[in-house]
Amino acid sequence: MELIDIIKQENIVYKKSKVLNDVVMHYCPGCSHGTVQKVIAELIEELDLQERAIGVAPVGCSVFIYNYIEVDWQEAAHGRAPAVATGISRLNPDKFVFTYQGDGDLASIGSGETLHACNRGENILIIFINNGIYGMTGGQMAPTTIEGMVTSTTPFGRNAELNGHPLKITELIAKLPGTSYVTRQSVHTAAAVRKCKKAIKKGIQNVLEKKGTSFVEVVSTCNSGWKMTPVAANKWMEENMFPFYPLGDLKDDIKDEPASKN
């Protein structure tokens, strides 16, 4: 059988989601943002939420998410996405409201808004991309930068005595009574992408069933900020980030089948 016989409409097993716009993303080659946004678009298509979904865009590299996913968007001030999402979800209780934030947005300037929105148990889904660096502004140290990690502002590696300890904000959020589902995932391999998709799907369903805040952290790479190739960055993340940020569910109040078993 020739290739031309296989490449037919009826044989398609994987293709670009219709919810994703047909533009080239501005992210660097191999950036995890693209993969996570693709997963979100696939789930919005799968669950038929395109007319109901309202996203809140952050400040950072991922601000242009509103150009890529074809749903309603609102841009929030730096770190204030959970506060804006609170207002949207309270005024539109029939909509699905989610925020998409990086670590500089969520764990640094917006830590107060995030903690309080999760503590109030707003019916929103928060997707948190943790790459341990301020990617857009040139790779400076973030609150989530792990100890010993070299960034442009910690050229000799992060030193806990001088720079403080890295912040595990997902563990903090898992302690709050308002959250129903808190998990940590990754998208560096196909298996990890499948698990991450299941976790985000569970988060979306929790929000639609009004069970409180769902929080999905995705441990990601920033290969240009880390000064590595995309493949080397994935390997570095496995070796150095995963021991400090172990993958898996941190909290699951809905006691049915767990979304992931890592």
């Binding site: 044989n11 097993v13 994987y14 993303m25 992210y27 693709k38």
Partner: peptide
């Protein structure tokens, strides 16, 4: 698997 990990969603996969 290649399509799943592609950050730019530029891969379409066929199977027969």
């Amino acid at each position: 698997n290649c399509g799943l990990v592609c950050p730019d969603t530029c891969i379409t996969i066929y199977r027969a």
